[in-house]
Amino acid sequence: MHPAPSVIFFTAFSGLGFGLLAWLGIGLPDVTGRPAFGYYFIGYALAVGGLLASTFHLGNPKNAVKAFSQWRSSWLSREAVLSVITLLVIAPYAIGRIFLGTDWALLGLAGAALALITVFSTSMIYTQLKTVPRWNTPATPVLFQLYAIGGGALLAGQGAVAALLLLVLGAAQLLAWQKGDRRFAEAGSTAESATGLGRIGKVRLLEPPHSGRNYLMKEMVHVIGRKHAQKLRIISLLFASLLPAGILLFLPASYATVLLAVVVHVIGLLTARWLFFAEAEHVVRLYYGK
């Protein structure tokens, strides 16, 4: 699939933002007043920024508001609705923390749960697609959840807990890559099943339908960059998981240490998310001999 920057930023940063808001919702760190403002500002900036980024890839953004209407059937619509509800539920809790110095714990817990459900619905936009076997597995929501909770813990200054979660994330990511590499073959779609000509014999594309490119090929038959996939996997594993975990565990705790770990983690997260799209093979490529 085409790794469009808007969708990479959308999934990466909204995930981080909602992850941080989930930690804040359960009262970790237990902050009020000015420091609380800082934490909530970062959480909202990431979540809202990510959501805004998602609108940049729309062909016809004037209809974007209609995306709130189909929550009964569409995961993308559910994601839109849930993210707004989550931000609205956490807002009074944040105001209580920042300006009144109070902890309305139940409201915070509800907000935290909603934040994680929002991340789940984001992941389901991709998981639901049978046409992309690499995404169409329980590993996708698990990974999105771990990136949100792990990255959120890092932003929430949860030191050793964050380090542990990032290591779990690294292991899960490694496992997901290994299983993901076999998914397309396991799903069973081939040039033979795509054309129904398998009963005659082996099928290969003789002539594409046109000499140029088209929307489908640009969007779903993306192959550029896969050759560097192994190197990029190592980079993203190091930067998203191992390095920030090491920084948190072995460097003296301070804002600067956390900031360094966050910067390193975001580089790894963006690399991993780029790979998530670039490595995903869509079954339509079978009609194009790729």
Binding site: G59, N60, P61, T131, Y215, E219, Y287
Partner: peptide, 24 residues
């Protein structure tokens, strides 16, 4: 009603939907 997000084209196994590059 279409906002041109392209998700339906991703969901189609047959490549039957194309987002028009000018109309969006």
């Amino acid at each position: 009603d279409c906002m041109g997000c392209g998700l339906c084209a991703w969901a189609c196994p047959y490549g039957a939907r194309e987002l028009d590059q000018l109309a969006g």
